[in-house]
């Protein structure tokens, strides 16, 4: 049986204490919430820690509530399962419910947290391997090595974002609160990410993602959203492509749009030009949707670092963008749906 290496577990009871421990110990310390990302990574030893700081005993982090402005606030350690089953999420943010429900499998969603999913490590089939396997390739740029085997001529790491909630929440315009030793700050979720497989999070190591704020203006009363996820099997698998869209309209005309993609870049890349192509056009304008879908494909950079042929995933980015936009626009969607059936 593959086992965890030894480490010291700390269970602080406040965010300040948690931040202090990590700040004090530096890179040898890591946060853990549900553990569904960190423990496999530590068992395979491509993430290492002498000290692991559990956030599960920090009071208030597991709250899911609506604030006065109609925003929805989801604490960092709220489990994915609770998000997916929450009635407010299901009725007001159905595409978010769908995105979260598509993550891995039911028992894992019962353990994994929204904060963990937003901070989930980038993935690559050269990286998510055991210590011995990685020795066989002399490691890779992301961990201990000098070459990104996905693109050996490149100077960067091409590991891909693996979060399903990130592109959806980014499209909905969510913000996240980061708590550090010196207090909290709030930033747009989209700004949490960087286009780099290694340094993929724009937060300081000691900062805790304490809360996600989903704005009222993105709920079903104001915004039409959709989430499409491509993966091999109907469960368990990470996305090899996901498309999250959110459309705002007035009098049948698109006034604002956001499209974010999962798994085809190192971050939940936004397709701004595609979104712009929809603005000012009637909701459900099939020509506009086709144009936007073509533009979506341009920002997708699928690499040979996950399941399926990378080139085909590029083809699918356009197809899925079109399908997601059609669904959000209230048009009929034909052909086969995500994971060969509709998610949710």
């Amino acid at each position: 049986m593959l086992r965890l290496p030894p480490f010291r577990l700390r269970t602080p009871s406040s965010l300040e204490e948690a931040a202090r421990i990590v700040a004090g110990e530096g890179p040898a310390a890591r946060f853990v919430a549900g553990g569904t990302d960190l423990w496999p990574n530590m068992k395979r030893r491509h993430q290492k820690a002498d000290t692991v700081v559990s956030l599960m005993a920090v009071p208030g982090l597991a709250e899911l509530r609506g604030d006065t402005g109609g925003n929805l606030e989801i604490g960092g350690t709220v489990t994915l399962d609770r998000v997916e089953r929450d009635e407010r999420v299901q009725t007001r943010f159905p595409a978010l419910a769908r995105a979260v429900a598509s993550i891995s499998s039911p028992p894992l969603r019962n353990m994994g947290t929204i904060g963990g999913n937003l901070c989930v490590d980038t993935r690559c089939t050269y990286y998510n391997q055991t210590e011995e396997w990685r020795r066989s390739i002399d490691y890779c740029l992301k961990e201990e090595g000098t070459v990104c085997w996905v693109a050996p001529g490149s100077s960067r790491c091409w590991a891909h974002t693996a979060s399903d909630s990130a592109p959806m929440l980014a499209a909905l315009g969510a913000r996240v609160r980061l708590a550090g030793a010196e207090g909290e700050r709030e930033i747009p979720l989209a700004d949490l990410y960087r286009d780099d497989g290694i340094d993929y999070l724009g937060k300081r190591p000691e900062e805790v993602l304490s809360r996600v704020v989903v704005p009222a203006e993105a709920d079903a009363g104001h915004c039409r959203s959709a989430f499409w996820k491509l993966r091999r099997r109907g469960s368990i698998d990470f996305a090899v492509l996901s498309v999250a869209v959110a459309l705002w309209q007035e009098h049948g005309v698109v006034t604002r749009a956001r499209i974010h993609l999962g798994a085809v870049a190192s971050w939940p890349v936004g397709a701004e030009k595609a979104a712009e192509a929809l603005v000012g056009r009637p909701v459900g304008d099939e020509e506009a949707i086709r144009e936007a879908a073509k533009l979506v494909r341009r920002v997708a950079t699928p690499m040979d670092n996950t399941d399926f042929l990378a080139q085909w995933r590029g083809v699918m980015a356009e197809r899925y963008a079109e399908s997601a936009l059609r669904e959000a626009s209230g048009l009929e969607v034909t052909g086969l749906a995500p994971n060969h059936r509709l998610v949710g």
Partner: peptide, 20 residues
């Protein structure tokens, strides 16, 4: 590199059908 490695020796990446 002279590496020749199994592409995906795990139950996650070696795809076996699920209930769905």
């Amino acid at each position: 590199s002279s590496a020749l490695v199994h592409k995906m020796p795990s139950l996650l990446e070696y795809k076996s059908p699920t209930f769905h």
